[in-house]
Design a protein around this nucleic acid. Structure first.
Length: 223
DNA sequence: GCATTAACCACAG
DNA sequence: CTGTGGTTAATGC
């Protein structure tokens, strides 16, 4: 496996020197996961940085009551920075929502790049900052919007950030959808059906088509 | 009080 | 796994 020819390089990896790419090649394992498989597991040992090359993933933590879906990430992205960088044990799990291609990068080698290559480090920091801002907004939305607004948010998220298409297959069960936006599967069902009755979306099982984006944005903003 | 919101429970496809 | 209906608790006019 040679990383030079990889078509899925992260914005950071593009700034590695020839020698560094070579070093990466020798310390990186490519693995494929099928939909539904766990990529890494909370409270298990890990000494790798995990990079998602293609596919879609849910990141989740087991809470006292149920599984909380922290975020949904599509490629390309680093999955296990905060969980591995200064920790021996994973603080959360990641599960494939679609078939995924993933690279496991040796932590020591990765750290070495950070020490030696400033531009590489800068790119990593940029990604981390973006993640933090995203999580701030998700926190805000979760706590200050009511469920209708959160469902609208999530639908717009899938449209804008994940599929870039008004019609898509929801990669989550109703239960997971609930865990993602902090509510119950029943509420998700009801609100999605209400949206359909009002002609805002069209839904058949997991297949969703957004008909009135304006209305969704409006609902999302109103909370 | 009365209405709204949302969780919980139960039952049925 | 989903959808629906009834019930209940909390919150807001």
């Amino acid at each position: 496996m040679n990383c030079i020819d990889c078509n899925f390089k992260s914005s950071a990896t593009k700034f590695l020197s020839k020698g560094e790419i070579e070093e990466l090649s020798h310390n990186c394992a490519h693995v494929e996961f099928k939909k539904g498989e766990k990529i890494f597991k909370e409270s298990s040992f890990s000494s790798n940085i995990i990079y998602l090359k293609s596919g879609l993933v849910k990141v989740h933590i087991l809470g006292p009551k149920n599984e909380q879906i922290t975020k949904i990430t599509k490629a390309s992205a680093f999955l296990g920075l905060p969980t591995t960088f200064n920790e021996k044990v994973n603080k959360y799990s990641a599960t494939a929502l679609e078939n995924c291609k993933v690279c496991f990068i040796d932590l020591e080698v990765f750290k070495h790049f950070i020490y030696k290559n400033g531009v590489f480090a800068y790119q990593i920091i940029t990604e981390l900052c973006k993640n933090e801002i995203d999580s701030f907004f998700r926190c805000l939305n979760r706590t200050q919007k009511q469920i209708t607004g959160r469902v609208a948010d999530a639908l717009l998220f899938f449209y804008h950030d994940i599929y870039d298409d008004k019609e898509f297959i929801l990669p989550l069960t109703r239960e997971e959808f609930g865990n993602y936006i902090d509510t119950t599967r029943e509420s998700v069902s009801r609100i999605i059906n209400d949206f359909q009755k009002e002609g805002i979306i069209k839904i058949k099982n997991k297949k969703i088509k957004i008909l009135k984006e304006e209305r969704l944005i409006n609902i999302s903003e109103k909370g």
